[in-house]
Amino acid sequence: MTLPLEDTLVGYPSGETVNSTTVLHSEPLPDGRLAVILERTCVHPVDAGWPDQGADRALIRVAGAELPVLDCVVGATDGGTLHLGRDIPVGKGTEGWAFVVVHLLAGDAVIAEGETAEVVVDAGYRGRLSAGHTGCHLASLALNRALADRWKKETRADGLGNPDFDGLAIDVSLIGENGSTDTYRLGKSLRRKGFVTEGFVDGLAEVQAQVNASLAGWVATGAGVRIDRDGDRLNDRRYWVLELPGHTVRIPCGGTHPSSLADVGSARVELSTADVDGATVLTMATFVG
């Protein structure tokens, strides 16, 4: 069977943790692992373009065997060669290319193209990652709100109408179980966009207090959370939607999330700064649950 020429069907955006499917492709990799592509999967993969949320823990049941998924990544193919992660040579949506979810198994795994398989995700681990991801979005909105008066130029707004500090200053975002860590660089580029850095470090405790107050208020609403999507394929656009009282927030997002803020339980952040190569770097650690 040749490599697929359609993007993988994905069920994880709707919260799916179990699905039946057909094995489309299986090939050994130079590192000794086995790359497996399924027609449909509920396993969330790592995207090399923005690897903030890691892969689900999962297994594939086939022909009476349970095969652990060692890792899961986004790949791409033109029908001839499979490219993984950062080795993908084209952008998403390139004509003639399919973007696929690649399940990486042990090299001695036995799984044949055309077989029927059942995919099972560790729902508890998924739930903790999902809570961490929603907490990350909430914290970014709360940080934007707390820093709204530090802009001296008009700039793009976030989903609540505040200047989008998070979107303009983010360096690295990592989603973990029941939390996240985001780092922001407050350098020359951000200052040219109109952000005022003078006195930022001295006022950090007050910013943290304001962020945590916003988080407590939002979580207390138990507001609904959902993923809107343009389709069921891997590359179809998806959005995190939060239904706060009186305001709907919509953010592009390819990750997984709980169905309401009631599932988050609680949320708080700890802010810290460091000097890196002459620029202030802000770290926001978010904790939920």
Rank of each mutant, 00 (worst) to 15 (best):
T2W: 09
L5E: 14
Y12S: 06
N19T: 11
S26H: 03
E27S: 15
E27L: 15
L34V: 12
R40E: 13
R40P: 01
R40N: 10
R40V: 07
W50P: 02
P51N: 10
P51R: 08
D56P: 06
R57G: 10
L59C: 06
G64D: 00
A65T: 05
P68V: 12
V69I: 02
D71W: 12
V74S: 09
A76S: 10
G79C: 14
G79H: 15
L84T: 10
L104D: 11
A106L: 04
A106K: 12
A106G: 13
A112F: 08
E113D: 15
T116W: 00
E118K: 00
D122F: 09
A123V: 12
G124E: 14
T134A: 15
C136A: 06
L143E: 01
L147I: 08
W151P: 00
K153P: 00
K153R: 13
K153E: 00
T155V: 15
P163M: 04
I170A: 14
V172F: 02
S173Q: 05
L174D: 02
G179Y: 11
K188P: 09
K188A: 15
R192S: 13
F200M: 08
V201K: 15
D202Y: 06
D202R: 10
V207G: 03
A216I: 04
V219Y: 02
A220I: 03
A223S: 06
R226N: 00
D228P: 04
R233E: 07
R233G: 06
L234H: 12
L234V: 08
Y239M: 03
Y239H: 02
E243V: 04
E243W: 04
H247W: 01
T256D: 10
P258S: 11
A262C: 08
D263H: 01
A267I: 09
R268S: 15
V269A: 09
V276D: 14
L282C: 09
M284T: 07
M284C: 15
T286P: 04
T286C: 13
F287H: 11
V288Q: 02
G289Q: 06
